[in-house]
Design a binder for these strands. Sequence first.
RNA 1: GCCGGUGUGAUGGAAUUGGUAGACGUGACGGACUCAAAAUCCGUUGGGCUAAUCCCCCGUGUGGGUUCGAGUCCCACCACCGGCACCA
Length: 811
Amino acid sequence: MKYDFGSIEPKWQKIWKEKKSFAAQDHSDKPKFYGLVEFPYPSGQGLHVGHARPYTAMDVVARKKRMDGYNVLFPMGYDAFGLPTENYAIKNHIHPAKVTHDNIQNFRSQLQMLGYSFDYDREVNTTDPAYYKWTQWIFLQLFKKGLAYKTTMPVNWCTSCKCVLANEEVVEGVCERCGSPVIRKEKSQWMLKITEYAQRLIDDLDDLDFIERVKIQQRNWIGRSTGAEVTFKSTAGDDIVVFTTRPDTLFGATYMVLSPEHELVKSWLEAGRLANADEVTAYQKAAASKSDLERTELNKEKTGVRLDGVKGIDPVNGREIPIFISDYVLSTYGTGAIMAVPAHDDRDWEFAKKFGCEIIEVVSGGEDVQKEAFTAKDDTGIMVNSEFLNGMTVKDAIPAITKWLEEKGIGHEQVNYKLRDWVFSRQRYWGEPIPMVWCDKCGWVPLPEDQLPLLLPEVASYEPTDDGESPISKMTDWVNTTCPCCGASARRETDTMPQWAGSSWYFLRYMDPHNDKALASKEALEQWSPVDWYNGGMEHTTLHLLYSRFWHKFLYDIGVVPTKEPYAKRTSHGMILGEGGEKMSKSRGNVINPNDVIAAYGADTMRTYIMFIGDFEKAASWSDNGVKGCKRFLDRVWNLSEKVTGGMEQSEANAAALHKAIKKVNEDIDAMKFNTAIATLMALVNDFYANGCTKGDYGALLLMLSPFAPHMAEELWEQMGYAKDHGGMACEQPWPVYDESKTVAQTVTIAIQVSGKLRGTVEVPAGSDNAAIEHAAKEVPTVAKFLEPLDIVKVIHVPGKLVNFIGKPKG
RNA sequence: GCCGGUGUGAUGGAAUUGGUAGACGUGACGGACUCAAAAUCCGUUGGGCUAAUCCCCCGUGUGGGUUCGAGUCCCACCACCGGCACCA
């Protein structure tokens, strides 16, 4: 009997589908387990091995959880709005909905070919109006709570996508998706107030079981820093509020810097206070036109203009100090104004050197501050030149000065975040329409909820426009409407939502995917929340993962969802690289197509290999020989079926190995150590070949193998008659039980050390006492040789492992 | 610059968290089967010394340290990878 995966795999896929073997139960006495993987963007290229790694991993977990007696929800869907589909549609003159539909068909069949145990009846598709109705609904709730607002501001504009980008979508000054330059553009945009949730997004991480690097990256991105706001005066009589994390260095402030966009600069210009107005406006203009890339360029020289006509007044000592504008101060962070302390800040120091500003040391303990800034914020520095702070450490000076500022009413403690509000509109066609209407009388009016979903209109051309408007803006029939509030003629919002909208709540829809009354019923939300285990890519840490936590917290606040966090546990997989360790790419020609692997070796081999490839969290390179090795292993499992002897009892010869394996594979799957779980199974098969195996031994092996190679496991389970004996498929069986006492072999090998150096080993019966082990150990010739010139002063025993004789030279 | 991670045979990677380093797989070499090849099976495979698969010495990026014992802990350094970056 040959291992014919080509017929076995479709056979079982059909049976699982017909029997709905993996349907999550809405009502069940079993404990629930909700396992989630990131739903794919259904691109034209289809599924790639990068998808297969996390999907296979969570499929193994889900299958294992079912065997452990859980009611498992393991769903799949499609995040189908987005630019590639739209661009493909433009190029080929096909409606994006049609492209999406075809791509999804292809994806689904690929997922099924890999034998994933998704509950396909719960599939969601973000472009389905029945789905995006609720995406729009959530937007309306955000608007009603004041968390969605439209404002004009400089935004990131991708020159190639012809579309605005969120801060999270700009990576090193270029578009995260297409790599084109990003420029600043003044535009009116819908914004979501994620900043309102900044503190909670940080705080609530503490209680979550997320891998540490995810937490760190999110905290880093939100970028909380505590300092003080201090009010300076200007010689023109204005208040200039600055933010600083080093209020202790207030006495060392020798000049001030405002961002070029600062309001005060505008008002001084208008009031004609600045003698060098031309120079100032020229600088403002130059700064405004700079691209993100130019603004963030490394090691670039500081630039700026000194304001001629207005000075700042240091509130602690009344000193008049010059004011500059410079683009090293960002208008979007803090108050857009700083006090500059060149002695204790690298950037200020560099600027001061270039513009000839005074450098006054206020913290001693560093090198000469005329040569470099001393920035240590710990106990190494002592305050000097700072009146009542003198003699304190920096650590003590910060609260002291903060308290003083508060008492004088010129400052207070302040927390700032790097996180900015989320730019939420996109000037493209293939996205959710934003359900808002502009009325000249009433302003922005939300569409009444009973008019949802607001469908995407049919348009003649999906082409993005150069004027920065969405293609939908050309559809005057759709755009022109009446105000839901006063009935006057009004215009619809023509921008659409970003791709991240639909994915910010999709995991909720899986709980109750066909509900047309709510995004999901209360009961379903109660039953399944939160997601117990969510695996996904690190690249989404500050995008999808952060956005969806924000939306979920909002939904929690308005009483829609029962938990304050969406995901209890988050893990992340490493990338699959091409053979030789290079990133897979079409241009390198090293892309592995899962379909080819399945055709040549079968889905079970593909699954087993991708789990065996290496540490799940780390990047791993594809190896065709590695695939062959896994195929060899499965062949050996298959061929072993002909060597099975005896009945359902487990053989003594294999007992220790088998029970250890049951324990180890069980633990390894929970810990995502899939590679060692498979290694354990391989070693067990080697043992079975060496010792022979009974039907009982073999059945346990098949069950342990079933999460990894489910088709083969089912087929052998059936052919060998287990299905009949146990009444059901392998995937319906409980995980084999191990007996702790049987995991211990009858004899153990004890390592013998003399003074910490390995000198031999000895076999003793398990459970031998120390005296017996010592006696046996001393008999070993290589040990005796080294023991001979020594007086033993101490013996260290590690039970079941090792004995170590410590001696000193005789005499 | 700041934060985090990693470094182990020819190679992907193991090592019960301080207790026999190199599990398992790949590759290579030798053998069996075969007219032959593929497939399969058996054996060997960190380096040195050696007639020897005896013994001994060395060996987990580098240099120190703690310990009876260190891949694992501590200190200093080097290399690579990732995130953030003029965030006051």
